[in-house]
Amino acid sequence: MEHLVPLTRFGDIGNGIIWILAFFAVLVGLSGIVNLFRPIRALQRPTGYLLVLLAVVFLAGFAWIGWFHHQIYVRLPLALPANLAQFLNSHLQMMNQGADFGLPLYDAAAPPRYVLPLWLENEKYYFWFMCYALLALPAHFRMQHPRLRAALHILLAVQVGILFGAANPFADPLPNFFGAVEPWFTGNLSPAQRFGLFMQLYPKMIFYYNAEYMWFHPPLLFLSYACITVTFVTSVFMLVRREQEVEKMGYDHARLGFFLLTLGMLLGYPWALKAWRPNWWWDPKICSSIMMWAIYSTYLHTRLYAHKPFMWYFSSFLGILCFLAMIFTFISSFFFPGEHTFV
């Protein structure tokens, strides 16, 4: 695929970005460790500058992913010979009869192209952790609490470590996507084979890669995950010591995260009907998402009774439980078969 898409260039520059992120993350993590176990502040201003640099590098890497996806859009159309296009359209017309959501007919003048969202495969980890970095930055300047800052910094360093060691989107770009489309562009296919492969690629292009909901449903969920992570940190500190400012910051992020989570789940509903018809209700990830939403909602409602004895600690426990439910929800698609298994 190198002759069609600049994979090497994308990987070389992207890996450089990951190394820069890792360097800054190590410094931020070391600062976090120092401040977590010291009673006085240390390196607060330099760490603030490092967080700004981390956020800028994250955004630069995200823009680089956007450039790469644009190259895919420009260079990888699913073009068909004219005689095969006519046969395909007659086949699609028959398929679409009586269907609630049919496939668009093939336009030879404008062959279908991949409009890939920026959070596919390992890119989703990059986007998720970038959202957390962008939230940790104002949280750092908002709170004058060295140990809370330290915990936020250490979590950010751990996330960059995951990117560097296990989820680098630049090391092997979109292996599942390229594995599926490579035969189309590199194989010597007969007309029958090309038609069969097109009918494998085209529905997934329309209902998954190019679905308009892909630009709203996943990013809203990952933004909510970043908010939940901040709430988790504050909840841990609330168990140790009762500080109103810490609780308020956790609650503010919880409100935003709950709104984003609810909106993201609602926007997933029409997409699920379109892509999977009615057979999606018992998908493991959807069931676990509803469980997480219920825990999240309970956490927010406990604030109404914050004046009651021990409610402070119960609310903190729910904030931690919500984070654990988020982790379970995310990994459920890797271990339990369902409609989200391939996501």
Rank of each mutant, 00 (worst) to 15 (best):
N15F: 00
F314W: 13
W293A: 11
A157E: 02
F178S: 05
F141T: 01
P173V: 06
L201W: 05
F207G: 05
H3Q: 12
Y73I: 00
L137P: 04
Q71H: 12
C131Q: 05
H91T: 14
F23L: 15
W281H: 12
F222Y: 15
L88P: 01
S297K: 02
M249V: 15
I295V: 15
P77L: 12
N122G: 00
H301M: 14
F87V: 10
P284R: 07
A25P: 02
A167W: 05
L135F: 14
P169D: 08
P219E: 07
Q86P: 00
A254W: 09
Y132Q: 01
G161H: 03
L135K: 00
R194S: 12
R242F: 02
P278N: 09
L50T: 03
E339V: 14
G179T: 07
W215P: 00
A157N: 01
Y73F: 15
P112H: 06
W271S: 03
I206H: 11
Y49E: 03
A180G: 01
A22S: 14
L30N: 00
V240Q: 10
P203S: 09
E212H: 08
R9D: 12
Y296W: 13
Q44T: 13
W312L: 08
P218C: 05
T262N: 04
I17Q: 04
M249H: 07
V5F: 04
F232A: 14
